[in-house]
Amino acid sequence: MPHIAEAAAAVGLLACAVATPVAAQIADWIPESRTGGKLILTGGVSTLEGSGGGGLATWAVTSGYGERDGIGGNVHATYVNLPDYELRSWGASTSFWDRVEVSVARQEFDTGETGAALGLGAGFTFTQDIVGVKVKLIGDAVYDQDTWMPQVAVGVQHKANDQGAIIAAVGGRDDEGTEYYVAATKLFLAESLLVSGAVRFTDANQTGLLGFGGDLNDDLEPQFEGSVGYLLNRNLAIGAEYRTKPDNLGFAGEDDWFDVFAAWAPNRHFSVTAAYVDLGSIATFEDQRGLYLSLQVGF
């Protein structure tokens, strides 16, 4: 694994060591709040876009371990190794009273050697910054076990890409975009099964890594993202995810995303998610399948 993963691991271990005192300090600052009320893994992990969820799909849960009486937060570093590209993401998220989640993330889509073949130059990198807010509306994914009612949340993500000129050159309409989603998540505890689905209104090309809108379509369209997870024990879940995407750019078709994952959280301060992802065709390079590795540290 290249140095980025090692660096992430080092950052993770360091952050792990400070997570507890930091959490205690923040809980002191915010009146009537405490940390760590949720059960392990029930805050989900960090998506590539920084919000709480699975790896590719956003969930209705607020990230971190704060309950209705507390706050939670975490940082993440994610690395995706694809045959022709590399995708890196890191960010932070904080949730207040299990009601509002605020997240930030930076993504780097590194074209590596492929950049030269695309005429962009080797190592050409698209960088995208994402700010997200999610608000839980109703339901409790974990405790409402006597009804079918899922936990429902709505959210917004604003994304800004730094390669406006290239995006325009390939037919993209904008280097910035705002997406809206509604997500529903439910833990079927008696079956040890978590099910989550979300509809995202988006015009993003490859989730914004190749800009927003295009020569084929420039409108927000509803797209689906969903996860199914099975709890093996208190600390380990496995599952699969699916995410549909628009197809706005004439120069390169875009495929739906898919992954199978395992998420392991030995405690409330640390989790590792490993996945096999299939991101399909990206900028004319087919079959982008590879390893996804994400570390999360928080409280």
């Binding site: 405490r34 009320g37 059960l39 309950e67 209705r68 009486d69 024990n233 208190r234």
Partner: peptide, 27 residues
């Protein structure tokens, strides 16, 4: 508070595991 409930459930999970109750039955 909600966090108290979480703490209680966690202790119950550990107690059930200690006495050999399979995870699915615990849930």
């Amino acid at each position: 508070q909600s966090a108290d409930m979480g703490a209680l459930v966690e202790n119950l999970q550990i107690a059930m595991s200690e006495h050999g109750v399979p995870f699915r039955a615990q849930n």
